[in-house]
Structures are given as structure tokens and as C-alpha cells.
């Protein structure tokens, strides 16, 4: 288990009259090497949760184990910087973090902060840029003059260059066009499948969750309401009704066909396969 939340709570403005419990006694274990999606409404605590993974926020109560670090509330926690190298956090609209004159400098900024030599950092930057599909012709260009989608890739390369073993993605496709979004997601699929990175995906887009996640964690009001395998999550009718979960279209269609008496459609994810089964059934 690379990540374990134990009775973790986080209170904003503790001790103030407008104190607010953003996370309430979270118990959660996230497994290694898989894609875990964290879903929930705006304000359900998703952002607060992922900022803990990177020690940007420290728990008010409880504890958190990540890889070989343990962060305990109200205790002095050291070596947070080392943790940040192992957990790469890609913020929403991550392109806003770009600031260097050239792309190669910006991407090698992270590794250098974590103590890599200039040569090492550039080498890592080049690898990372290759991963996100930007070739040598981009190295010396300014990151600020790219299109939105390309900027986002540079920003993500900047995180990948640190070689984190856990990658946290906050709405990675927000603001991209559908083509840009699917290219972006295929980068993360490669990272998970070929590089065995543990991926945590925070998103509102259930199509993305269904397409990409192995496990789904549902947050509501700062509490974990469910942690299920992706397929089980989208078949749990009580959960869907209680939290008004929008079903991925293929699941919705499957359910409607099932109601009409079609059988053998369970766990079919692909339109072609679904059609084939429907035709066979007839």
C-alpha cells in the first residue's frame, strides 16, 4: 500500500469562527500501480485530499502514510521536500506554472530543485518531453507562446521529469478540446501501463473515470462514501441514486437495454462489442 489515510481530518481556519471541516476522519488505502479515480461534487474535499498527498496541507488530525513517509497530525514533520519529489502533483490548469524562458529550462526546473545536476536534469527533461510527445524542435522555444494543449504538455513534462512514482492529476483534461483530451489521457495510460506509475485521477468527468480508472473513491462532504472497482461503482444503484452519479453513456445504454430484456451485456465497455452482443441476442 503506497498510500494510507488513517482517521485523517482537515479543518480550514482552525479555531476561527468560520472553521470548516474539509475532510472528516478519512480512512482510505490506495493501491500501488493502478489508477484510482477520486470523484465527488465541487466542495466535497477532493482538492484538500490531494494537497495532503504532497504535504502542501498537513492533517489537523490523524495520519497519512505515503511510500516510506508518515505524516502525523500535530507532530513535526520533516523531509517533506523528499516526499514532493516522489509524488508528482499536476494541478488543474497546470500550464499556469510555466515561467522559464525556454521549454527545456522549465521542464528541468523540478529535477534541479530536487538536487539533480544540470546535465542530469536536462537529460530527464528530454525524456519527459519525449513522453508527452514534444520533440527537439521545442527545446529552445518559449513555453509561454504555445497553444493551450501544448502548454499543458510542457507543464506535465515538468512533473514527469522529477520521476515521481505516484502521479496525481487534478482535472487533467479541463479546457482542452476532445482531441487534446484524448491525447493527454493516452500519455497517462502509457505511464501507468508501461512505467508502472500509480495514478490518482481527480475529475468530474465520469466518461474519463470509466475509460481510465481501476478503482473509484467517492467523496461527499469530506467523507469517503465508497471505494469500489470501477465496474462495481457504476452498477451500484443505491450509490447512483443517492449521489446522483451521472453514468457513462455506454453504461446508461446497457442499463436501458437490460431493462428491455436484453441479456449478456454486463461489463461490455465497447460500442462495437455491445452491438455485436445485441445482434447475437436477437
Amino acid at each position: 500500500m503506497p498510500i494510507e489515510f488513517k482517521e485523517l481530518s482537515y479543518v480550514y481556519d482552525e479555531g476561527m469562527p468560520f472553521a470548516h471541516h474539509a475532510l472528516n476522519k478519512i480512512d482510505l488505502a490506495i493501491e500501488e500501480g493502478i489508477v484510482t479515480a477520486i470523484v465527488g461534487k465541487t466542495g466535497s474535499g477532493k482538492s484538500t485530499m490531494i494537497e495532503h498527498l504532497n504535504a502542501l496541507l498537513l492533517p489537523s488530525e490523524g495520519s497519512l502514510k505515503i511510500l516510506d513517509h508518515t505524516i502525523i497530525a500535530k507532530e513535526k514533520n520533516t523531509n517533506l521536500k523528499a516526499l514532493r519529489q516522489k509524488v508528482g502533483l499536476v494541478f488543474q490548469f497546470s500550464e499556469y506554472q510555466l515561467f522559464e524562458e525556454t521549454i527545456i529550462k522549465d521542464v528541468s526546473f523540478g529535477p534541479k530543485n530536487f538536487g539533480a545536476s544540470e546535465e542530469e536534469a536536462v537529460l530527464k527533461a528530454k525524456e519527459a518531453l519525449k513522453l508527452v510527445g514534444l520533440d527537439e524542435s521545442y527545446y529552445e522555444r518559449s513555453p509561454l507562446n504555445l497553444s493551450g494543449g501544448q502548454k499543458r504538455r510542457v507543464a506535465i513534462a515538468g512533473i514527469l521529469a522529477m520521476d515521481p512514482s505516484i502521479i496525481v492529476l487534478d482535472e487533467p483534461t479541463a479546457g482542452l478540446d476532445p482531441k487534446g483530451a484524448s491525447e493527454m489521457m493516452s500519455i497517462f495510460k502509457t505511464l501507468n501501463k508501461d512505467y508502472q506509475k500509480t495514478i490518482i485521477l481527480v475529475t468530474h468527468d465520469n466518461e474519463l473515470v470509466y475509460d481510465f480508472a481501476d478503482e473509484v473513491v467517492l467523496l461527499d462532504g469530506g467523507e469517503v462514501k465508497a471505494k469500489l472497482k470501477c465496474e462495481d461503482f457504476f452498477s451500484d444503484q443505491t450509490l447512483i441514486d443517492t449521489y446522483k452519479i451521472v453514468l457513462p453513456k455506454i453504461v446508461a445504454l446497457r442499463n436501458m437495454l437490460k431493462e428491455k430484456g436484453f441479456k449478456g451485456l454486463d461489463e461490455v465497455r465497447d460500442i462495437e462489442e455491445l452491438v455485436e452482443r445485441v445482434v447475437d441476442f436477437e
Binding site: P178, K179, K249, I250, L253, I271, E272, L274, V275, E276, V279
Partner: peptide, 20 residues
């Protein structure tokens, strides 16, 4: 040009490919 196609149209298309 790499644009999306509405989901329901995709399903109709898949049926068409099966000759239906």
C-alpha cells in the same frame, strides 16, 4: 479532422457496419 461524434450516432454506425 479528429472531432467527436455523438454517442448515439456512433451506436447507429456500429449497427450499420454489421449490416443493420
Amino acid at each position: 479532422i479528429g472531432l467527436d461524434i455523438p454517442f448515439t450516432f456512433k451506436v447507429s454506425e456500429a449497427f450499420k457496419n454489421k449490416g443493420i
